[in-house]
Design a protein around this nucleic acid. Structure first.
Length: 438
DNA sequence: AATTATTTAAACATCA
DNA sequence: TTGATGTTTAAATAAT
């Protein structure tokens, strides 16, 4: 086939700003922006003579990092807290931001985000209360956080969809439960890929743990998770002792293993399985199955080993995490802390929604999914492989429990935290046993 | 230099 | 019929 060059104008409707003259690549291949582009992109605000080329291909945003970095910090689940401060207008600055943030230069707002589409999507989804979003909401989130896209040639939406479709990290979830309005499906992150995504995210300059030191920015997110993340990250870089990683991973599992037991019954079915789709889109987030699941046979999900192959993004630490946490969304450091108070009232409504205030922008206040059947776990592993894997997981639940106990202690030691977690755990366990007896 | 990852464009199908 | 959504292919480019 090959690219069809003579695209009909109406097809360009894909790009709402149909008047957009050139694709991004075309634009930045040119030394300077054609006038037409400038005309069509009044808000593009290419502040100086920097061509779009620089904007897109250079890491010039890195030079602005002093400003930019203030916009990102590693928040819950290790996700960068991407504040809408990035907004060009800057009029929707949430209160929390001001404390840790210095107004970025406008040009930052129009700089291309340092995240791949995969990561942007990931962040969008993870920042949603229900951990799954329709594509439109993903657009919105990205747009909201990165006004760059407001003026970028809107082929980016195509790219988003392209990523959703092809990237194995994302799963489409059927929109069935009485949710009539709107077309399309919900998209969620395959939990098995979260470690990969997290890893990729951490590799991004902005997500650096360097932000951890800004207490004022912690909002609802306590410092501790930041600290933990920091520890994890640093240690990953500095060849952390595996035991420590295990401990952290286990701690993360601590909550999810409990909650999942309760919640994992009510998940919507995926429209397709991961096997069905995303065949040819090899990327950094390829299936963790490529990782040797050396131990934990019981955890080994029915992953087709021939599924994929170029798992390149992860460090050994991440791989360990991935292999060990195939059951969970390992990413959530916050969950470690959530667990402690939550363990006493496990499972409330299944909403693992991160109670962070990151979403105070109200993006999801009227989230059509809010009360639909797609609560949190809708985006949990819903693939076939996941389902069979889940059986295995239940079997290994106790096994994990034991591991968790040891690991928890190890982690606390690592973090220098002296708590009575041990007693908390036993308390939780006691309660659990009581419930079983009933 | 080769491979892999990512981005972008495009065509096309489906659905509301 | 139209627009949004989803899938797929292809090519270019960046990164490793």
């Amino acid at each position: 086939m090959g690219p069809v060059i003579g695209m009909t104008p109406d097809k360009r409707a894909e790009t709402p700003g149909a008047e957009k003259v050139a694709g991004l690549s075309q634009i930045y291949k040119m030394g300077s922006l054609p006038e037409a582009v400038d005309a069509a992109r009044p808000k593009a605000t290419l502040v100086d003579s920097e061509s779009a080329d620089d904007e897109l291909t250079n890491l010039n945003w890195l030079h602005e990092s002093t400003n930019l970095l203030t916009n990102f910090s590693l928040g819950s689940e290790g996700l960068p807290i991407v504040s809408p401060l990035y907004d060009i207008e800057g009029d929707d600055v949430p209160s929390f931001g001001s404390s840790c943030y210095q107004n970025p230069e406008k040009k930052s707002a129009t700089s291309k985000p340092p995240y791949s589409f995969s990561l942007l999507i990931y962040m969008a989804i993870e920042h949603s209360p229900n951990k799954c979003l329709p594509v439109k909401e993903i657009y919105s989130w990205i747009l909201n956080r990165f006004p760059y896209f407001a003026t970028a040639p809107t082929g980016w939406k195509n790219s988003v969809r392209h990523n959703l479709s092809l990237n194995k990290c994302f799963q489409k979830v059927e929109k069935s439960h009485g949710k009539v309005n709107g077309k399309g499906s919900l998209w969620c992150v395959d939990p098995e890929y979260k470690p990969n995504l997290m890893q990729a995210l951490k590799k991004q300059p902005f997500s650096s743990a360097s932000k951890f030191s800004t207490p004022a920015s912690s909002q609802s997110v306590s410092l501790s998770p930041h600290y933990l993340s920091s520890v994890l990250k640093q240690n990953q870089v500095q060849t952390l002792k595996e035991s420590d990683i295990d401990a952290a991973t286990a701690m993360m599992l601590l909550k999810t293993s409990i909650e999942q037991g309760i919640l994992e019954c009510e998940k919507p079915l995926p429209l397709k399985t991961a096997l069905q789709k995303k065949r040819s889109y090899g990327n950094a987030f390829n299936h963790p199955s490529a990782i040797r699941l050396q131990e934990s046979d019981s955890l080994a999900t029915s992953i087709d080993p021939k599924e994929d192959h170029n798992y390149s993004a992860s460090s050994m630490a991440a791989q360990r995490c991935a292999s060990r946490s195939s059951v969970s969304s390992l990413s959530s450091v916050d969950e470690v802390y959530e667990f402690i108070p939550k363990s006493s009232h496990v499972g409330s409504d299944g909403s693992e929604g991160f109670h962070s205030e990151e979403d105070t922008d109200g993006d999801y206040e009227d989230d059509p999914l809010g009360d639909s059947g797609y609560a949190s776990q809708a985006c949990a592993d819903s693939s076939e492989k996941g389902q069979s894997g889940k059986k295995m997981r239940k079997q290994s639940c106790q096994e994990i429990d034991e591991e968790l106990k040891e690991a928890a202690g190890s982690l606390l030691h690592l973090a220098g935290i002296r708590t009575c977690l041990g007693s908390l755990i036993s308390t939780a366990k006691t309660q659990n046993q009581k419930q079983r007896k009933k």
